[in-house]
Every structure is written in structure tokens, then in C-alpha cells.
Design a protein around this nucleic acid. Structure first.
Length: 501
RNA sequence: GGUUUCCUGGCCGAGUGGUUAGGCACAGCUCUGCAAAAGCUGCUACAGCGGUUCGAAUCCGCUCGAAACCUCCA
């Protein structure tokens, strides 16, 4: 493994950017909390997973061997009324709980594919790791950090906090004393010694459908336990990066740390990364209060919040324009700007990749233009190295784009940019756009593009003949007709090109 | 109520003690048969009030406003 460039990552534990050093040089273990599959994925999930997809891709780009684990939660989440989420969905739809999980897992995977995210290395399911979770409960009990009450097992937060100073609260920044006084009055908490305690094993009630036998009762594992058990199983007791949405900091991640710590006496992850929320109308998107827009609605333009459909890649680009730790407000104007920006940068890339590289033009020196472009390339990577700042990288690419267009328009002389710099530009652009940002050229990607190319070639040839004869009526009729069909004709100095609008 | 974060130009959004981020929109120009595209130029902002500093949008304090978490949520 060769030396990696210094990479800075914002660590929730310290609240600062820290230089990233993997436990094993060249290898990265990354765990990201995945979706609970009891409903269609919503956009907020997509932003988080797109962000971590970009992070995963950049780590790969840097040459790391990454084991990326992202779980599927198909049991254990309790709803407000204490009912298991999977069971609730099942009752509504008259389906087996696992049938519900399966349906939404498939839907989730479809959506991830639409957003062009790479699949994780391992995608463990909570229901597939019940024995591991039971084992962990046992270990925690043996270490005296949990207690059994009527068949349920609760994690003893005060005891844990007393024995491990500074650990509980390290993720969420919460002060233990505050927790005791702040925790709201919740029903059915009588069994707990302390309001801050949480269940690691729940005894089933008659209405619970997804249950397993355990030393304590027939029941099911607590919500936070699956991530502890599965991250340990696949990444080890301590691994490099643990990620998830901001809203999981408390209680989920805090309790996860407590469990891992309680079971093995060590901190599970060196770096905790949290993505920020997607906002709609200035507020967090939320499943429960209806302030939401689904990815499908975004793609079809059927939401009241948008004026037109936006393609998946336009949406992905929209997300990339903001830093992953910033909140991102979804607005129609913002999406429109992103869509334009996306189409333009893809077009710039197409022009760039078609630029001829003529070695004879190279006079052997490094021009000011060369240096300017090289500086921009440096900026783009420096932005990524600084906590994955995609906004900086995009800004740098746009500035490179200006040079590319000028070169293509012969507004700067071909000799002003060295051939090797153009080659470098080509590599940098495709690396960023496709490998790191995970974008796809949607216009190139339709099945009938070959047919379309042929048709367009013919049509534009006819138009060219009309123009040569100054038959503007025919020429404009073709242009307007194509425009109406969604194709923009671009007359350039060296001929005609076209693009889907 | 407690904890934390944020407030950037018409809009979206980076950044951060001293230099125009970038995009979108808009205006003018170049090119063009016209238009589009592309290029060039213009638009130079950091919620308010104090303080620190040679210098702050960037650090500190207060105020206003917003958001997140404290309860399932990415």
C-alpha cells in the first residue's frame, strides 16, 4: 500500500477535523446505519446514503481497500405506541412481517441504484444476526452493566457512565445529569431503574409477531443492539469510521457506543461521521409530520413543492453542491440551478473528452494557462481532502470548464495548453464526475442512443444543406421542431452539435 | 424548558482573521442569417449591536431570527 495523501475528516467525537489515519494502513472499515425497511425510502435517507457513497468512492479513489458495511434494520424499532414497526406495517398490509421487509428492501435497493450508489461490501440484516445480539446481551450482563426485569434486559446507563468516565455523551455531547432531568415522561418505563436506561432485549407481548427465544424470554433485541453486534462481527471491536444521519446521534449512536463499550471495554469507532438533514420548506423532512417529498415525486414532478420533474442525477448533483455536514434546503429554484449546473458540467466533459490532443503543438514549456489549470486541479483534490468538500471541488471543475470551452472555441490558442495538461484534465474530469461524484451521463444512457445519433446526423445534414442555400425557413423549421422535441441545436464555428434539453 | 448549531449578494450554496469561491438568475458585449450554445464584462454579500485587532463576514459577548436533538426518524 502506498502512502495516502493527508485526509481530514470531521470527527463528531472531537467536534473537529482530524487527520484520518486508518487502524490498518491502507484499509478502512466503515459502518453506516442503514434504513429501517418498513416503508418507502424517503429523500433524507437518500441524501445520507449518497453522501456516504461519495465518501466511500473517494476513499476508494485514494487507494484504500474499504469494507463498507451498511445494515438493513428489519426488526427492533419501536413505534410511539410500542409496537414493532415491522409488525405494524404487516398488520396494515395484511402481510408477513418479513414480506414487508422484503418489499421495502427491494424498493430501497432500486432507489439506491437509481441514484447510482455503489452497493456496500456487506449489507447485514438485523434478523439475520439474532444469535450475535443475544450473545452481546449476555456479555453485557456478565460484565454487570445490564439488569433483567420481567424477561426484558436493560442497559444500566448510570453504572456504565460511572465506570467509564467521559464515554457516555461523547457522541451526542449530552451531559448525563441533564439526561436524568430532561428525559421526558414516557409510559411503560416502570421497569427501568433510570429513565436513561434502555432496552437491549425486550420481552414480547402477545401482539408482537417477530420474536425469538432467548435466555430471558421470548422476545426481540433492542433497537440499538443490531448495529453494535453487526459492526463488531464484520469490522471488529474497533474500526475506522462509523456514519449515519445527524438525528441518530442521540439516542441511537450514544447507546450503541455504550453497548460496544459495555461488551468489550473499548470504543467502537475512531471516527464518527454525521451527515446533515435535508430540509423542505426550511424544516427537516419527516416521515411523521408529512413535510416530505419522495424521490419518485421529485423524478416525476408530481409534488406540490416542485414545478417540474428533476432527474436522479440532477438531484444527486444538487446534493453534491452542498457540503455533507450542512443542512440542505430543497427548493424549486435550487433544484433548477443544480439541474442546469449538472447538464452544463456534463456537456463540458463531453467537449473535453473530444478535444484532440496534438503533441506537435507542445513547445516544451509550461505556460501560465497550464499552471492555472494545474492549480485548479490541486484545489479540487484539496477540497476533497478537507472533509470531502464537494462544493469546492465542483467550483474548481467549473473554473476548469471555462478553460475547456475557451479552448474548444479557439478563444485560447491550442498551443497555450500543453498536451499532457489536457490529458490530465480529461482524467481529472471523468474521475471526479463518474468515479468520485458517482454521476451518470443521462443523455448518453438511453438504449436508443445509436438510433438517435443516426437520425440526428441525417436531420442536421439536411439542415446544413438548407443553410448553405440560405434557406432559413427550412433551417429554422428543423431547429424549432427539434427544440419542441426536446433537442437543442448548437451552431458552432466548426459545425453543428446537439444535446437533449 | 434543557442542549447544540446556524443566520452569506435576487436565489442556491462554499469559505474563513487581510486576496472576486462556484452555480443559477439578470444586464451589456463578442460570435451568429436570426436564435441558441459558448466566451467576455457587470452585479462584491456575509442578521443586528458592541468588543478584541493594524485589519473581522471570519475571534469574543449580547440581541433578534431559524433549525436540530432531548420521542420513531438519515
Amino acid at each position: 500500500m502506498t502512502e495516502q495523501r493527508p485526509l481530514k475528516i470531521h470527527n463528531t467525537l472531537s467536534g473537529k477535523k482530524e487527520e484520518f489515519r486508518p487502524i490498518t494502513p491502507g484499509y478502512v472499515g466503515m459502518y453506516v446505519c442503514g434504513p429501517t425497511v418498513y416503508n418507502d425510502v424517503h429523500l433524507g435517507n437518500c441524501r445520507t446514503f449518497c453522501s456516504f457513497d461519495m465518501i466511500y468512492r473517494y476513499l476508494l479513489h485514494l487507494g484504500y481497500k474499504v469494507r463498507y458495511v451498511r445494515n438493513i434494520t428489519d426488526v427492533g424499532h419501536l413505534t410511539d405506541d410500542g409496537e414493532d414497526r415491522m409488525a405494524k406495517g404487516a398488520k396494515v398490509a395484511q402481510l408477513e412481517p418479513m414480506e414487508v421487509a422484503q418489499r421495502y428492501t427491494v424498493g430501497f435497493h432500486d432507489m439506491m441504484r437509481i441514484f447510482n450508489t455503489l452497493p456496500p461490501s456487506i449489507e447485514p440484516r438485523a434478523t439475520g444476526h439474532i444469535p450475535e445480539q443475544i450473545e452481546m446481551v449476555q456479555t453485557i450482563l456478565e460484565r454487570g452493566l445490564a439488569y433483567e426485569r420481567n424477561g426484558s434486559v436493560y442497559f444500566d446507563v448510570p453504572k456504565f457512565a460511572a465506570e467509564n468516565e467521559g464515554v457516555y455523551g461523547s457522541v451526542s455531547g449530552r451531559v448525563l445529569e441533564d439526561l436524568y432531568t430532561e428525559t421526558r415522561e414516557l409510559k411503560s418505563q416502570e421497569e427501568k431503574n433510570h429513565p436513561a436506561d434502555f432496552a437491549i432485549w425486550m420481552k414480547a407481548r402477545p401482539q408482537d409477531l417477530m420474536v425469538w427465544n432467548s435466555p430471558w424470554s421470548v422476545g426481540f433485541p433492542g433497537w440499538h443492539l443490531e448495529c453494535s453486534a453487526m459492526s463488531t462481527k464484520y469490522l471488529g471491536k474497533t474500526f475506522d469510521i462509523h456514519g449515519g444521519g445527524n438525528d441518530l446521534k442521540f439516542p441511537h449512536h450514544e447507546n450503541e457506543v455504550a453497548q460496544n463499550h459495555g461488551a468489550c471495554g473499548c470504543h467502537p469507532a475512531n471516527f464518527w461521521m454525521h451527515t446533515n438533514m435535508l430540509l423542505l420548506n426550511g424544516k427537516k423532512m419527516s416521515k411523521s409530520d408529512g413535510n416530505t417529498i419522495s424521490p419518485t415525486e421529485l423524478f416525476t414532478g408530481t409534488s406540490e413543492h416542485t414545478s417540474k420533474p428533476y432527474s436522479p442525477m440532477a438531484v444527486r448533483f444538487f446534493m453534491l453542491m452542498a457540503h455533507y455536514r450542512s443542512t440542505l434546503d430543497i427548493t424549486d429554484d435550487g433544484l433548477m440551478a443544480a439541474e442546469k449546473g449538472f447538464l452544463k458540467i456534463m456537456e463540458t466533459n463531453r467537449i473535453l473528452q473530444n478535444l484532440p490532443v496534438n503533441a506537435r503543438d507542445f513547445d516544451g514549456s509550461e505556460s501560465d494557462t497550464d499552471r492555472a489549470i494545474l492549480a485548479l486541479i490541486h484545489d479540487a483534490f484539496a477540497g476533497m481532502d478537507d472533509d470531502f468538500n464537494t462544493a469546492i471541488a465542483i467550483a474548481s471543475l467549473n473554473e476548469m470548464g471555462s478553460f475547456i470551452h475557451k479552448l474548444a472555441n479557439q478563444q485560447i490558442a491550442p498551443g497555450e495548453i500543453s498536451p499532457w495538461v489536457i490529458e490530465r484534465l480529461k482524467t481529472v474530469f471523468s474521475t471526479f464526475l463518474f468515479d468520485i461524484f458517482g454521476l451518470q451521463d443521462e443523455s448518453a444512457n438511453s438504449n436508443d442512443s445509436g438510433t438517435l445519433e443516426g437520425l440526428m446526423g441525417l436531420i442536421l445534414e439536411i439542415r446544413g444543406q438548407a443553410r448553405a442555400q440560405k434557406d432559413w425557413a427550412t433551417s429554422d423549421k428543423i431547429r424549432d421542431g427539434l427544440s419542441a422535441a426536446g433537442i437543442t441545436v448548437k451552431d458552432g464555428k466548426d459545425g453543428v452539435t446537439w444535446a437533449k434539453a
